[in-house]
Amino acid sequence: MIFCQTRDGALSEVGLELLTKGRRLAAETGGELEALIIGGRTAHLAEEAFRYGAAKVFCAEDERLKDYLTLPYVRIAKHVVEAEQPDIFLAGATSVGRDMAPRLAAELGCGLTADCTALELGDCSYRGNEYKGVLKCIRPSFVANQLTTIISPSTRPQMATIREGVMAKEPLGKPVQGKCIMVDTTALLKKEDFAVSIIEKTARERGVDLKSAKVIVAGGYGMGSAENFEVLFRLAEMLGGEVGATRAAIDAGYVGGYERMIGQTGITVRPKLYIACGISGQVQHTVGMDKSACIISINCDADAPIHRIADYAIVGDAVKTVEHMIALIKNNRR
């Protein structure tokens, strides 16, 4: 079962990505794909879920659910999960999914793996036990450059939140003839589910749009200072791109704004060109950019792991090299 978050009255991208992945997992097991949609008006969104292969779509619609609220959303999800007993429950690792899934998991007594970048079905042996056909949830671990596989073999559903943008979304040529099932929210929701109320809501300025940038010039801790970061802005501007950064660079104050953060706790990007400057290449960062079409790494340390995933690796001072490149590109354009 996929929890499909809505955004501006439509299914969110990550919901469609997860439906696509869920469809493949269901095909592997001979199972069925189900979707759960909660919001102000949702019935009309079932069609979209059918296009991605959902055989059953549970729609909860209620004016009070127009905006995401933890308690009523968890109440509804729990109700549908308990009735349907899916083997797997997936949600996007968005601010909504990351708020809702842990509470739902504890409510159901189920294991949850956060921020996965890959999912696989397979057999597993662990501490002398053999588990058949369990969901292997793969996520970068806190120990740099490690991928950790986590299973929840004894509880159902096996739950995971998945990063936005890591799974490809592919609609079917022909939608499935699915069933849309309306959830009776009036009967289900209680007064205490509305203990939290939204007083005010303002869209956040999305000044930086890394997701749709074709070129990203990113800097890491190795850039050394905010002044040195300026050169990255110049190169990005010249190439019609955006500036991204690692968490370490942002934490160090070299560049403002977490909206520029690429990696495990930031965003995942797939630009045409990614220029990594002064970035060592810890997995927390590389999971967010390793699918870029072309990667150029610039780092004075020849052993920096970033060089190994780059198409072109330059061992050299990042600031000097970038300045040099700016001048050279100017010349080439003349």
Partner: peptide, 8 residues
Amino acid sequence: PTQVVESR
């Protein structure tokens, strides 16, 4: 309920 089975 969760078990870390592999760190690679």
